[in-house]
Design a protein around this nucleic acid. Structure first.
Lengths: 206, 206
DNA sequence: GTTATATTTAATAGCGCTATTAATTTTCGA
DNA sequence: TCGAAAATTAATAGCGCTATTAAATATAAC
């Protein structure tokens, strides 16, 4: 029986690669290991994806979209700026809770391999820019109205990303610096969403 | 002339290693490359430090201390809790500004090699715990007095680390998501210190 | 059933890395 | 100045990795 019983081998490779890349990053993951997880020959990984880089890129692009997706949706309901922002922050946090390794993947790859930034920008640059300019416009309108203090949209984005992503990025560090148990850490994660929302909304006040 | 003109070779290796480890992390830095930077034979790196791991550890430990150092000093002056906290946050931010690659190093190594957590904890565990418990005690006293809202000291630490470290961790990401120039990024970094202080002090209010 | 095509495997070239060893050169005190 | 100790080098064993190639096997169309 040569053919893989579990159906689509290409898909299995993709899934194993995703798990391993998220776990250890690009450099520490080998096509040999991916093949071992799937239970196939190592050459198959290259048969389907040619190079390790191509395999990684196809995964990475979708992950970047996932990370941004919380900010992409345009809310139809007529809600206040703060309420809309609150929902986006919560949605973003939820996505990260479900994919806690995501922030590390970005940091790791975009820091160690700045070349990839160009690739990413080509593919998602327009989307991310439109997200940014929409936020910028909304923010300026609110500032104009005097509802929130004057601030740079980059600062707001930074605060959101910092608070939301960092918990997942630094949880290994936290465990070292504070001698905290895994259960306590889970508790922190659980209640941290509202904490973040609170801090972010507080930071807007005039 | 066999002897290195620039004096202490061991020190030069240490410095080159530090630069490279900070730049690319443990895995992507080779002893071969370190030797090339120093201009010596690759075996010398192993002559002085035996293994790449030992070389890394000796650097890593000092970096962890550096990261924490802002919170170590006990301020003699009689200042309010908020003022003391403000100064610590600023000192911490200053250290990171001077060592912007530090946060990435921690995240990278403690995430990809959790084994190292044990080593770090053995060496700095007591120090970090005493820092934590001092903060905890001070915080509880202030909460008792009603000066700040009830909160977990872990939350406060998380907020500080998140806001301070993240800017330096994610600056490559920011450049992608927002199409920001290097000059603009420098501006953001420059004014971000007070922004962080503001957000942190705001987050304490009852 | 035969055959073209898709999938899978074994084998391997070629690279860079870590760590060790033995030999060589330099240093420096007696 | 001699010789032990320290510093440095060349050489290399041995490993795992990426990517390719050619051969083997399975699939499906006819």
């Amino acid at each position: 029986m040569k053919r893989n019983k579990d159906g689509n081998t290409e898909q299995q490779i993709l899934e194993a690669a995703e798990t391993l890349f998220l776990e250890k990053g690009f450099a520490l993951t080998s096509t040999t290991e991916i093949a071992k997880v799937v239970g196939c020959n190592q050459a198959l990984v290259h048969y389907y994806f040619r190079t390790k880089d191509q395999l990684f890129d196809s995964i990475f692009e979708r992950k970047v979209y996932l990370f941004m997706s919380a900010f992409l949706e345009i809310d139809s309901e007529k809600l206040s700026f703060e309420e809309r922002l609150k929902r986006k922050v919560e949605a973003h946090y939820d996505i990260l809770s479900a994919n806690p390794k995501l922030p590390f993947l970005f940091v790791n790859e975009l820091t160690t391999n700045p070349e990839r930034i160009k690739t990413v920008r080509e593919k998602i640059g327009n989307t991310s820019q439109s997200v940014f300019f929409r936020l910028k416009a909304e923010l300026e309108e609110e500032i104009q109205k005097g509802n929130i203090r004057p601030m740079n949209p980059i600062d707001l984005l930074l605060t959101i990303i910092a608070l939301n992503a960092t918990l997942f990025i630094v949880s290994p560090m936290i465990k070292v610096i504070v001698n905290i148990s895994d259960e306590d850490l889970q508790q922190v994660i659980a209640h941290r969403k509202q904490e973040n929302v609170k801090i972010i909304l507080n930071s807007l006040k005039p």
